[in-house]
């Protein structure tokens, strides 16, 4: 496994700390004029999502984490696992509930997701930034009311609940920003 020296540290670098893969969020070079230099970092544990502060002596080297982000197509869920396919190699992988997390709300057939692999196994799944979904259930629309800015909950097949404007009807297709879970627009 490769090692990184602290002078190669930058945001997004994946390293192993205490046996878990971490991603560097930010790093700062700290050095008194005459004295030991340090690198103070904030790192995110990729298994738990927790961000902690970690200080290194400059020049120290840290093991790299075998973590990579790949684009994979979502295929189906069997209730326990979510199955993804590498569109180039056709290799299939199953991600468990911990890896998928809240992303399952936005998984639609053939959606291309960012799957973070750790030692070849899915560690996290990031859905596309925007998805289009059909509304399964919502209160009847108020026709003509396009300006007042009121919202109502709309329920999706996936279980996601999105606040939509009052004029949106059941069965309509809408565009959603998965990062915030917010309604973007109607899809004609």
């Amino acid at each position: 496994m490769a090692n990184y020296s602290t002078n190669e540290f930058k945001g997004g670098l994946k390293i192993m700390l205490d046996g878990d893969p971490h991603s560097i969020v930010s790093n700062e070079f700290v050095k008194p004029g005459k004295g030991q230099a340090f690198t103070r970092t904030r790192v995110r544990n990729l298994k738990t999502g927790r961000v902690v502060e970690r200080t290194f002596k400059s020049g120290e080297s840290v093991e790299s984490a075998d973590v990579m982000d790949t684009s994979m197509q979502y295929l189906y869920s069997d209730g326990e696992y979510w199955h993804f396919m590498n569109p180039e190699s056709f290799e299939q992988l199953a991600a468990d509930k911990t890896a998928v997390g809240d992303a399952h709300l936005w998984l639609m057939d053939e959606a291309v997701c960012e799957v973070t692999l750790y030692n070849g196994q899915p560690l996290a799944v990031t859905p596309p930034n925007f998805v289009e979904m059909v509304i399964k259930e919502t209160d009847p629309g108020l026709r003509g009311d396009t300006a007042t800015g009121g919202t109502k909950p709309a329920y999706m097949e996936s279980g996601a609940v999105v606040k939509v404007p009052l004029f949106i009807e059941e069965g309509e297709k809408i565009k959603i920003d998965t990062r915030s879970g917010e309604y973007v627009s109607r899809v004609k």
Partner: peptide, 8 residues
């Protein structure tokens, strides 16, 4: 609750 590098 501050990080202290063991490499010191």
């Amino acid at each position: 609750n501050k990080s202290f590098p063991t490499s010191i």
